[in-house]
């Protein structure tokens, strides 16, 4: 658990972060979002003391972070950044094994861990272990960066726009993998991004920052539905918020049992989002979709009225 209590950071006469309080529960995925210069990266970097906070207290598992030695603190917190920061003179395997080696794990344990992580992140040992960072694509390098951050099995992972420099397709697949990884490993993640779709897709807790202050925090859906002010509303997409909300809700949420009127011709997977369902309706010019399971068997149907959430039962 990470707890920030009235944290401020001043650089000279400017205040980058102004008395913010934030609690991230264990196993929670917390996204910090905001415009450039809103203090989100500064906040992240104060947690592992790459930047020292000016006022307030930061606790990790109830202990103030200043009670740890800086290096010891950082070795128990994973850290991944947009530019990866992989060491260009080290192979992929050596880069990943960095923190375990700093913690003086025996060599056999380090090697086993490196192999485990490479498998976890879909990097084949044979192909990548001996490669150097400049021989990797952006997506591969970022996988290595994430593997390195996870190497010593930290409870906490700090990520500063890790997917910001990737193409949309690679970014989306890494987002899905990260989400999946977090569900399996139960890490506490603090993730900085200015990409609102990314934040909405990943976060359990969304923290909207502006000019060094927290404007609003909460579950992405509740922030979307009840923005605290105009700034939050516009940052979340203004009139696009309906689509963003639909992207967070699965089809199964609004699905009805199969009716008697026969199965609709156009189909949608039950795992798809309402946004995708809406897109299919717009594209196919239909108002009714058959919802199918993984084996393409119809299990329900979705009408346009249900999709937009019209209160049919009233």
């Amino acid at each position: 658990m990470i707890e920030l209590i009235n944290i401020s950071k001043r650089f000279g006469s400017t205040t980058a972060v102004d008395s913010i309080s934030l609690k991230v529960e264990s196993g929670e995925f917390c996204c910090l979002v905001g415009t450039s210069g809103c203090g989100k990266s500064t906040t992240l970097r104060m947690i592992n003391r790459l930047i020292e906070h000016s006022d307030g207290e930061i606790h990790i598992d109830q202990q103030p972070i200043r009670s740890f030695k800086e290096e010891a603190l950082r070795r128990r917190i994973g850290y991944a950044i947009q530019s990866t920061g992989l060491f260009p003179h080290w192979t992929v395997a050596r880069n990943i094994g960095l923190v375990p080696r700093l913690l003086k794990w025996p060599k056999s344990k380090v090697d086993a861990r490196v192999e485990e992580l490479m498998t976890l992140l879909g990097l084949s040992m044979d192909e990548f272990a001996g490669k150097y960072p400049d021989q990797l694509s952006g997506g591969q390098a970022q996988r290595v960066g994430v593997a390195r951050a996870l190497a010593a099995d930290p409870d906490i992972l700090l990520m500063d726009e890790p997917f910001g420099a990737l193409d949309p397709i690679t970014r989306e697949s890494l987002q899905l993998e990260l989400r999946d990884l977090q569900a399996r490993l139960g890490k506490t993640i603090v993730f900085v991004t200015h990409d609102m779709d990314e934040a909405l897709a990943l976060a359990d807790r969304l923290v909207v920052m502006h000019e060094g202050r927290i404007m609003q925090q909460g579950h992405p859906l509740s922030v979307l539905r009840e923005p605290a002010n105009d700034f939050v509303a516009s940052l979340l997409g203004g009139e696009d918020r309906g689509l963003k909300e639909a992207a967070l809700l699965p089809v199964s949420e609004r699905m009805m049992p199969l009716g008697t009127g026969g199965v609709a011709r156009e189909r949608i997977d039950q795992g798809a989002s309402l946004r995708e369902a809406l897109s299919v309706m717009l594209w196919r010019r239909v108002e009714r979709l058959a919802v199918v399971d993984d084996d393409d068997i119809p299990i329900g149907e979705l009408s346009f009225r249900r999709l937009v959430g019209a209160r049919i039962h009233d």
């Binding site: 290096e71 950044i81 923190v99 700093l102 700090l158």
Partner: peptide, 8 residues
Amino acid sequence: EAARGMGM
């Protein structure tokens, strides 16, 4: 930055 962040 990464080297520091990793705890070197």
